[in-house]
């Protein structure tokens, strides 16, 4: 019998447009049996649009586990560009069905003004694509 141990599984997604929501649809690897904690962080990109080092919310993320059977809820994604940024994870405790889908939606909430968006809907050069990472702290039996 294999021993269950902790691993960290990141799911990264890119945001290319301030108004278009991002759909998340991915299958978790089959060795993940449980998700104990979740953390969602901004990775790179937003720092190109602002001189601030901290924005409390840049977007909202809704996450569903086990092929939409379980809606975890909505998570605010902050932009925190400081070394003192919190390391805390959100409690989850979700038993994962084998080969189930992780689905969700992300809605950007910042930099949606006319400085960033032209009248025809395309982005200006002030907009920068950015990457958000969902860290899943998991129990794995690989």
């Amino acid at each position: 019998m294999t021993k269950t141990r902790i691993t960290y599984y990141p799911v990264q997604f890119i945001v290319l447009h301030p108004l278009i929501p991002v759909t998340i649809n991915t299958v978790l690897p089959s060795h993940i049996v449980k998700i104990t904690d979740i953390k969602v962080v901004h990775s790179v990109g937003v720092q190109n649009m602002t001189t601030d080092k901290y924005l409390p919310v840049i977007g909202h993320l809704s996450l569903e586990f086990n092929s939409k059977q379980y809606h975890f809820g909505n998570i605010e994604v902050p932009f925190d560009y400081q070394t003192e940024a919190s390391d805390e994870f959100l409690d989850a405790g979700i038993d994962i069905q084998r080969n189930s889908l992780l689905t969700g939606n992300y809605e950007n909430k910042v930099f949606t003004g006319i400085d960033y968006l032209k009248a025809d809907g395309t982005v200006t050069d002030k907009w920068s694509n950015y990457i958000v990472t969902i860290y899943l702290k998991t129990m794995s039996n690989d």
Binding site: L16, I20, V22, Y106, N129
Partner: peptide
């Protein structure tokens, strides 16, 4: 390493999951 992925516009239209092979 992640900065390099920012220019990837193949995730149309608004963005999407970055494949593990890209990372």
């Amino acid at each position: 390493s992640l900065q390099d992925l920012l220019g990837n516009a193949s995730y149309n239209p608004g963005g999407g999951i970055i494949s593990k092979n890209d990372v």
